[in-house]
Design a protein around this nucleic acid. Structure first.
Lengths: 159, 159
DNA sequence: ACGGAATACTTGCGCGAGCAAACTTCTTGA
DNA sequence: TCAAGAAGTTTGCTCGCGCAAGTATTCCGT
């Protein structure tokens, strides 16, 4: 096998590859920023905050382990700790210890949290539609999930 | 035309729509975090920092207006000011005033900046290939750029 | 030609969040 | 049984970066 020398040149990205990469970055930034601005303005929620509430509301027993919640919400464990601190201070979420394993902590959505989530839901829904889904055809939508889904395969998403 | 009442229910996102939305968030997070970790570890550059250098190196006269650079790099003007401050302190970029319009400032990449960029290029290239492009087929690559490109076509980032 | 609006950039401030290290609790191998 | 190590969470520290306000310059209507 030929070993790559330090001077060996690698082919640069071609136009299509560059376009795919840049469109991913820019589209993501644009969509999430608009969505977050709406949620913030209308309901005082951040996007990660909303997603935490949404995931909890759909989880069995309305609770999830901190570490699982972290990967759902695309946050590091420490990031999730702070976010749950904040949501907890706002009364939207509570912590509960696990009887079986004293290391794990559950985050549980409160009744008030469910209320806020339901109130914010239309805003989020409209945002996802306006900024993403309605700008794509059905084929493009499938292609998008098809292409990007496997990239985050090890981040379990309940679908 | 029926006017939507306050109580009118909107259909929730279906499975495909949810999948597209979540895959966008998770894939973006995964790819950019890995890429940034590599750049940071091997060359002490952040991803936005790398992209600023890359855009400058390809610009006519190796310079771009701050505001143009901001939208390329997916940053707000203020965010770009700090980033250019940092790159400037590291000697990778310089500021230059514009003779024709005293309001505009150009960011210009230095020789040292070009050196650092060239050194980091293989890392970035490999990252984009490993974490994104090589995991997609040619068709998926086109579909991705095709679907996401228009979302940010009009204005790259401005809200 | 002049004063108000628009444009380009920078600063004050604050917050979200990542990394590394510290605890705590559970597991496992000798 | 009892370390040693792994797993889950939290804390200390730090920094990137967005928003709003401030400054400097240019444009435009009258």
């Amino acid at each position: 096998m030929a070993k790559a020398s330090a001077r060996e040149q690698v082919a640069p990205l071609d136009r299509r590859e560059m376009a795919a990469w840049h469109s991913l970055i820019h589209a993501h930034a644009k969509v999430t920023r608009q969505l977050e601005a709406d949620l913030e303005a209308e309901h005082g929620l951040t996007l990660p905050g909303y997603e935490v509430l949404a995931h909890l509301s759909e989880a069995p027993d309305r609770r999830l382990r901190m570490s699982d919640l972290a990967s759902f919400a695309v946050l590091t464990p420490s990031g999730l700790t702070r976010l749950v601190d904040k949501l907890s201070a706002a009364g939207l979420v509570e912590r509960a210890r696990c009887g079986a394993d004293a290391r794990v902590v559950y985050a549980v959505i409160t009744t008030e949290g469910l209320r806020r989530l339901r109130a914010a839901y239309p805003t989020h829904l409209r945002g996802v539609r306006d900024y993403l889904i309605d700008r794509l055809g059905a084929k493009q939508l499938d292609a998008l999930a098809d292409a990007l889904g496997p990239l985050s395969a090890d981040c379990p998403i309940r679908l």
